[in-house]
Amino acid sequence: MPIRNIAVGHPHEATHPDALKAGLAEFISTLIFVFAGEGSGMAFNKLTDNGSTTPAGLIQAALAHGFGLFVAVSIGANISGGHVNPAVTFGAFLGGNISLLRGIIYWTAQLLGSTVACLLLKFSTGGLTTSAFALSSGVGVWNAFVMEIVMTFGLVYTVYATAIDPKKGSLGTIAPIAIGFIVGANILVGGAFDGASMNPAVSFGPALVSWSWDDHWVYWAGPLIGGGIAALVYDFFFIGSTHEPLPTTDY
């Protein structure tokens, strides 16, 4: 059972060199990802003079996020696992693949990375607004809530299948590609409705820098619930007794 494998971790983990290196890797990876993804949206707004979203803009966003996440996961995979997303970290925690204390380090690094990326974008673009995620006209908060749950379920399920599952074999080498692809595909689906976040850190940075918090809870609750369900489902049905727990030093 996944819940039995949950580990809190030791207090000294907060200052352990490996944990700090992993946190730094998450910070850098998230910064790179958000700078590319959020930056593509700002570039589109500048080119269209803040025009409405078009199919071309949606494709641009999907490509920028897909490519950016592929790189971000790849460069962090050997250090931190390349989570780049609090929902992925939460799913890994529920499956017993990361301790609570290390997860808090990851969350802090991811939120800081997103915030710094947005501050750099605002400065380097001459003060352009970092647009916070928002619901499209006619889309209610509960519509977006379910959309975020489903999209993040697909993302975290893909992470488990290609990167976490101990039986993944050669799939582990293409994990960053698969993860980038599912995010790009989901943006093509949900981008026109609620922006398709799937990542609380990606939503947090722009919201903080622009100080726009409308319906922000949707972009936390939806991804965390979707990611948690995906982790529990995959771990329970497909990993099961073959689960490899954390090393005893992490408990």
Rank of each mutant, 00 (worst) to 15 (best):
F93H: 03
K122E: 10
I98A: 05
L101I: 14
I79E: 06
L155H: 04
I75M: 15
W107L: 13
G140E: 09
L155K: 07
V150S: 08
L69V: 08
V146H: 06
A77I: 11
A132S: 14
H83L: 10
V139H: 05
H83M: 13
F153S: 07
G68C: 06
F145V: 08
V71R: 04
R102G: 02
V159R: 03
T89E: 07
G91W: 09
T129Y: 05
S131M: 04
V71L: 15
G76Q: 10
L69G: 12
F133D: 00
L69T: 08
G68E: 02
G103F: 02
G82P: 05
F145L: 15
V73R: 10
V141T: 11
V141Q: 12
T152V: 14
W107E: 02
G140S: 14
G76M: 11
I105Q: 06
F123E: 14
E148R: 04
C118Q: 05
A92R: 04
L69R: 04
S80E: 11
F90K: 01
A132G: 08
R102M: 03
P86V: 11
V150R: 05
G95N: 08
G127S: 11
V116R: 04
V139W: 01
E148V: 09
A117R: 04
I105R: 04
L120D: 03
G95M: 12
N97F: 00
A77P: 01
F145G: 08
V141G: 11
G140H: 09
T129H: 13
F123L: 14
L94N: 06
T158G: 05
S80V: 10
M147F: 15
